[in-house]
Structures are given as structure tokens and as C-alpha cells.
Design a protein around this nucleic acid. Structure first.
Lengths: 209, 209, 209, 209
DNA sequence: TATGAATGAGGCTTCATTCAT
DNA sequence: AATGAATGAAGCCTCATTCAT
């Protein structure tokens, strides 16, 4: 094996390990709650030393943020795939679906963002996260604007459509995940259908006030 | 003053102090974030000793829960006032309005509940909280059922109407409070109008799918 | 015992404990070197818990600085005693003597100051330390100026006399304390006499260059 | 190129690299303070791997000591140059001048020596350092003894002359380098002249006590 | 020989809770 | 009842050193 190949492999292994740490951290955060998970727990679970984690990430907060950024990047990737296809109308519903698809993760990130912003930690990464998000939202906005222009959607600012959908999805997630409110709804499948129908209705044919 | 009067007064003072501690704690949590607020900070702000707080509450988690319970009790009180009046149609919108009225507080409690349940702390109080909530929801449910029966609302399980409203309110709060998404909406007043109109529409005239 | 007395006693005990921590810390620093002494060691030696130390001092650096400040305050006290007496000529030699009297402590503080300034730690306390020092130097300066005016000392800026004496004392301390250079001098008593004679000569009758 | 030449070159390159590491380490220690400089920083600055440093030096303490030894060797070299010349009277003043010429380096080594001795690290190198120093001091001592015999210097043990000069130089360096005391002297050039004149006086014509 | 990923002991600090007064 | 000093478990992070490649 050439030196170059060796070096490449090393770099890949390093990246792989990083991925492994992040995946494990996410799992543990979801399972035990972010407060209960220590850096040492993550290291133990991955099967590496505590110090190794700090070769990859400067602080625990950086782990939080990288997780969030990856999430937002997944979304961006999804968007870029759809954008290439002809059926751009799907974009909005895919966005909605993605946000709702892994509610526990979504809620975790919601809490983490609050915490990280509260502590004013790693502001560069927070900016990066927000930049990606903004880009995703822009993509979405332009799609929605086209559909408004085409008369398919009520003529309010495109942001309103998106924000309302976001809010409904966010709220639905919170509800289903809540130990209390989740139990209040018996047939979740059916309820989700109901929510989706609302989402569609609220976009399409509203007559304000 | 008789011994009884004295005792009564003492009890009242004790209650008053409890109220004061809770109010101060809430203020501090909202201002600095629940993680940054120590029991000592609360005691200092109230002007009492740290130990005194532990005469009133067994743990810090108990403070969290009592705050949440009070919130839910306020809501119950509001309900009982409205229930006496003839205009029960107002109930749903009042519920909605109350939930949205102090978004920071609402979100704080949302985070606290997650934490407290995660840690399986003070389960009796969690139960109590959930009992009050259930009662409030029941009140709400029966109102909504009556209105469905009267043909004023779409005929889906009453819970769906309530849960959908809850979700929309919850999501709208999260959106407006988010440092990122909040900035995405320029004219918040107008957006709230839009959301409210959706809330009404989604209850009234839906034609599913 | 009245409540006031009780409170007073408590405060005194608290002060006493603070003193105890500082004394113990100093001893340990001198014995094992500042790098080897952990906060836990200090706590153990005093016979208290680690956390208790942090009721008295915010950081370990604060302990360093308080120790230095106390040292400088001792010196100030000595000065104020002498200033009241008629024989102010003694002041300079007392200063010299004090600086030289506990060489290990002096050197410890020298190292600590370097470290603390390097780390830009607790700048308020550093300022406080420097303020006391400046005051001590001012006292000294005015004495020396009077003696220059009286023709007892060579007419160079008073600071030169003081700084030269300081430098000689500082150097002598370093020399005696050095494991290597200290061994280079057999009869330390006699050497110190020699140094002192230099100190006197250098002040009195110099003809520059 | 012959194998011998190759080997020789390799050895030279290895030596060169060692020199480079030490130079870089010194620079970094002076710039950021010895506590803040990690082995990794040194390696990065030199542009080599961390592990490579450990091919040259067993521990970080060894780096400290080699730096100090080189310093003392520079001094020895200076001495050997002067010793060959006729004007041996210059020796003492050159010693003095050398010690004072790079005060930051001098102080760094002073701190490092304390630390290394405190930790009882690499005692062989400490011995080596002290051996070179002793040799330098011996050279110096014999010169001074000749000048005493010639009546040029006061008749006290030669060590006293040397130690006094050392102490004065050491103290002067400490004073000028101190963030506090350094600021106490306005015109440093002039003050150094003053100190030097003292140095001369204290050697030449003293009348003890 | 050169590398740099991995290690883990060790240090500082925080804070909910206890308890003697 | 009120106090606040004392506690110590627990967490984050650093960095000299090792070792497999």
C-alpha cells in the first residue's frame, strides 16, 4: 500500500470514528436524555478513551451543534434531490414529513438549541447551523412563491405558509411525544391524517378572517 | 390575638412566603434560563436563607413541578369562570389564548416537564399535574362535543379538534420564540392573525381529504 | 448568648477558617511547590471538604493573590508602625530586612505573580495588590527623598536607591535559595554581612561612573 | 555518496532538527509562558509530528534542561574565548553583561529550574547543568582571585564578589521584567547605568562596615 | 524514522442538599 | 422556624506520554 493510500485510509478511519462518536452520542442522548449523558459515557459506549473525544470535538457543546448541523444538512440533501426532479410540489410536503419523521430527535435538537444559545456556546457553529437553515428555507420559499403565483396557494406571504406548516408539524410532534398529551389521543395514525388534512386545507383555500 | 389567630397568621405568612419563592424562581428561570439559576440565587433574590427554601420544598424539582401545577390551576380557574357564563363557545378560544399568552413561560414548562419526567422525579406531583390537566381537557372536550353535536364543528373526535388547536398553538409559540425562526417572520402581529384564522378554519368547515 | 453575639461569632469563625485555609495553603505551597498542591490537598489538610474552599475563594488563583496581598499588607503594617516612631531612617532597612526574612515565601510569591499575570487571572485582585505595593513604595520614596535632601544619601532619584536595594535583596534571596548557587557560598552569615555592607555603601557615597 | 557520508549527513540532520526543536520551544516558552506551551504546539510550530519530539527527548522536562544547559554552555564558550585573550579583567563584566542581556530568557530558566528540581526530574541532566555552571564559576573565581591578589579588588573571598554581582544582576533583571516594579523606574537606561556603577563600586573600593 | 491517534490520570469547579445552631 | 456553612459527588477538560503503523 502506498503512503498516499495509507494516509487516505487514516483520514477515512478518523472521519469514521467521528461519525461513530456522533452516532453514539445521539443514541445516548435520545435514550437517557442529554443531561444524563456524560462525555465519559459516550467514550465508554464507543469503546474509546475520554480524551479521544476531545481530539475530534473541542467541547461537548460542539457535539450538540454538529449533530444539529448534520440534521439540517440531511434536509438540505433531501431538498437538492427533489429540486432536480420535476415535481417540486413535493418539496413542501417532504419538508413537513422529514421534520415529523423522527420526532424524538427533532425535540432533542430543539432543546439543545435552546441550551446552546442560552449559554452562548460555539457561536460560529450556531451561525453555520442557521446559515444552512436559512438556505433550506430559501429554497422552500421560492417553491412556495411559484405555487402562489400559479394560484395553487392562498396569496399570503410565502413565509406564512411555511411557518404555519412548521408550527403545525412542530406542535404535532410535541403533542405525540408528550407523555401526557400523547396519551390523550388514542388513534395516532388517524389523528395524523387529520393534521395533514388541516395542513393541506390551511394552505389551499383559506379565506382570511 | 388568640392562639388560634396567631397560628392562622403564621400559616398564612408561610403560604405567602411559598408564593414569593415560586414567583421569584419563575422570574429567574425566565430571565437566566433554568440551568443557570441555583437554589441559592432564588434564596438571595427572595431575601431568605437557602435552608428556608427546603422548609417549603423538598427538592428543586418540586419547585419546577409546583410552578407547572400552578400554571395548570390558573387555567382551571379560568375555565371554571367561563363555564359559569353562558358563552361556552368562548372556552376553546380562551384556552388557545391562554396557552399563547406567555410563550416564554409556556416553553420553560415544556422543557421542565421533559427534564422532570426524564429523571422520574417527584412522581406524585407529576401525577397531580396530569390530573389537573386531564380535568381541564375533559371540560374542554365536553364543550367541544356539544358544539359538534350542534353541527358547529366538523364531526371528528373532539380530541382531534383540541389536539390540533394545541399543536398549532404550541408550534406557533415555538416559532415565535425561536431565535432563528422568529426572525424569519417580519410582521408577527399579522402572522398571528393568519394562524388564528387557520385555527378557526380548521375547526369549522373541514372536508377531510 | 444574644443573637448579635451569635452572628458575630459566626462571622469570626468564618474569618478564622479563611485564615486557616490560607495558612495551610501557604505551608503546602512552600513544602511541595505550588504545582503539586491541589485544592483537594488543601481541603484535606485543613480537614474540610473541597467545596468549602469555594465558599471562601472563587478560584485557586484567588488564593494565590490573597496570599500575596496579605504579604504586602504585613509590610504596610510594619511601615505604619515605624512611620509613627521618630527613627524613620529605619524604614528602608526594615523594608530590606522584611523582604529577605522569609526567602522561600518571597520567591513563591514571585513565581505566583508571574503565573497569575501570565494567565490574566483575577485582575481586580492584581490591581489591589499593586495598589498596596505602590502605597508602600510611596512611603519609602518620601523617606528616602528626605534623607537625600538631608545630604545623607547620594543625589539620584529616590527610586534608584530603592530599586537598587530591592534588586540586591531580591538577588541575594534568589542566590541563597538556589540549590546550586546557595551551595556556592559556604558561610552565608558572613556573605549576608557583605551584601548588607554593599547595600549601605551603594546608597551612601557613590561617585557615578 | 558513500554510506559513511550518508550516515554522517543523517546524523547532522538529526542534530539540526534537535536544535530546531529547542529553538522553537524556547521561542514559544518566551512568548506564551511555559505553562501554556504544549508539546503539540512545539511540534506544530516546527512542522513535525509530536512523536518525533520524543525521538529526540525523553520528556518535556528534558527539553527544559537542555535549554538551560545550552545557555550555560554559551556562557562557557564566551569564557573560553575571553580566556584566550590577554584582557581577563573583561571576564567578570562579560559574565554580568551576558546574564543581563536576555532577561526574559534568564527568568524563564530560573522558573524552569525551580520546577524541575521541585519535581526531581531528570537528575542526571540537572547534574550536568550544575557541572558546567561549576566550571564556569571556577574560571570566574580564579580570575577574581588573581585580581584580588593584584590588589585590584577588595580582599574578601572571591565567591563574594561573584555572588554579589550575580545577585545584583539577578535582582536588576527581576525588577526590570516585573510588570509592577518595572513601571516604577521611568528611565531604565539611566537606572542600569546606576546599577552598573554600583556593581563596579561594590567590587573595587569597599571598606566593610 | 516519523507520525499522530489514543489514552487516562488528574485538576478545577459547581451546586443540590444536609444539618447544627 | 430560619439560617448558611459544609459537603462531596459529579462533570468537563487538559496534556504528557505511548505505540502501532
Amino acid at each position: 500500500m502506498s503512503d498516499l493510500e495509507k494516509a487516505t485510509r487514516k483520514v477515512q478511519e478518523f472521519r469514521q470514528r467521528e461519525r461513530e462518536i456522533l452516532d453514539t452520542a445521539l443514541e445516548l442522548f435520545l435514550e437517557h436524555g442529554e443531561d444524563r449523558v456524560t462525555v465519559e459515557m459516550i467514550a465508554d459506549e464507543v469503546g474509546i478513551g475520554k480524551g479521544t473525544i476531545y481530539k475530534h470535538f473541542e467541547t461537548k457543546n460542539e457535539i450538540y451543534l454538529l449533530l444539529m448541523i448534520h440534521y439540517e444538512e440531511e434536509l438540505a440533501e433531501l431538498f437538492s434531490k427533489i429540486s432536480e426532479s420535476e415535481d417540486q410540489a413535493k418539496l413542501a410536503s417532504e419538508y413537513f414529513r422529514f421534520r415529523i419523521s423522527d420526532p424524538k430527535r427533532y425535540q432533542l435538537f430543539d432543546r439543545l438549541e435552546h441550551r446552546v444559545i442560552q449559554e452562548k456556546a460555539v457561536p460560529e457553529l450556531v451561525n453555520q447551523l442557521h446559515t444552512i437553515r436559512a438556505s433550506n428555507l430559501n429554497t422552500l420559499t421560492s417553491i412556495v412563491e411559484k405555487r402562489i403565483a400559479a394560484g395553487a396557494l392562498e396569496d399570503v406571504p410565502a413565509q406564512y405558509h411555511i411557518a404555519a406548516a412548521w408550527a403545525l408539524a412542530h406542535g404535532a410532534v410535541a403533542l405525540m411525544e408528550s407523555p401526557f398529551y400523547g396519551a390523550y389521543i388514542d388513534d395516532k395514525e388517524d389523528f395524523i391524517d387529520f393534521i395533514v388534512s388541516i395542513g393541506i386545507r390551511m394552505a389551499n383555500k383559506g379565506q382570511r378572517r
